[in-house]
């Protein structure tokens, strides 16, 4: 394994650089995935059948909480990567841990939100609109859930093995993923919630 010390740890081997490029390409595919969901959402937005519309069911409070939590977690993962770059393993684990806790809090709020929709009669089966709404939110939520497990595995590895080039690489890629989910959320917030409530 040839280490290139002129580069940050996560870029220090050939395979590491390949992994990061590969993940960027994967994010390209993810952009297409969410773009398809958003396009479908716009198509079904007004096709509410006999069910409720967005303005009927959206609540600002949980959405704001989710947004603040997720934005903060994007900040803390940034801090974690910064700590990694200056080789402060302890600080890095702390920030990564906070990120994961925030992610869990986000999920909990989203589960509350889904529960609320269920109780007011906006389920997956209600109409084209509720179907695509819950599918889009659910896809994002599933990504966050997956991210939580992934992040937890990385956290365990840092604590067990310290910061090797491989683990630094994984952490960095995880941070890309987490930022990406944040960006998707900003789109969800603007084009689904705000647009729907106006």
């Amino acid at each position: 394994m040839k280490l290139d010390h002129s580069q940050p740890l996560e870029y220090s081997t050939d395979q590491n650089r390949l992994n990061i490029l590969g993940f960027w390409i994967f994010l390209g595919a993810e952009i297409m995935l969410f773009a398809t969901l958003f396009t479908s959402y716009f198509v079904y937005e007004d096709r509410i059948g006999s069910g409720p519309s967005g303005a009927d069911i959206f609540e600002i409070t949980p959405v704001l909480i989710e947004t603040i939590i997720l934005l903060t977690s994007s900040f803390t993962i940034g801090l974690a990567i910064h700590a990694m770059r200056i080789n402060r393993t302890k600080a890095m684990t702390v920030f990564l841990g906070i990120t994961l806790l925030l992610g869990a809090a986000f999920l909990a709020t989203e589960i509350y939100e889904f529960n609320h929709y269920y109780h007011i009669g906006a389920t997956l089966q209600t109409s084209g609109f509720t179907g695509i709404l819950l599918t889009t939110l659910g896809t994002h939520g599933a990504h966050v859930t997956l991210g939580l497990f992934w992040g937890a595995m990385i956290l365990i590895q840092i604590m067990k093995r310290g910061l090797t080039p491989q683990i630094a690489n994984k952490s960095f890629i995880f941070s890309l993923y987490w930022h990406f989910l944040d960006v998707v959320w900003i789109f969800i917030f603007s084009f689904i919630y705000l647009k729907g409530m106006m």
Binding site: S40, V43, Y44, G49, G51, Q125, S127, G128, G131
Partner: peptide
């Protein structure tokens, strides 16, 4: 979406409740 329609009863491609077969 097709799987959801067939297995979970959603209305993406049906002709009722806002579904759209052309989608």
């Amino acid at each position: 979406m097709g799987t959801f329609d067939r297995q979970f009863g959603t209305h993406f491609f049906t002709s009722m409740n806002g579904g759209m077969d052309m989608m």
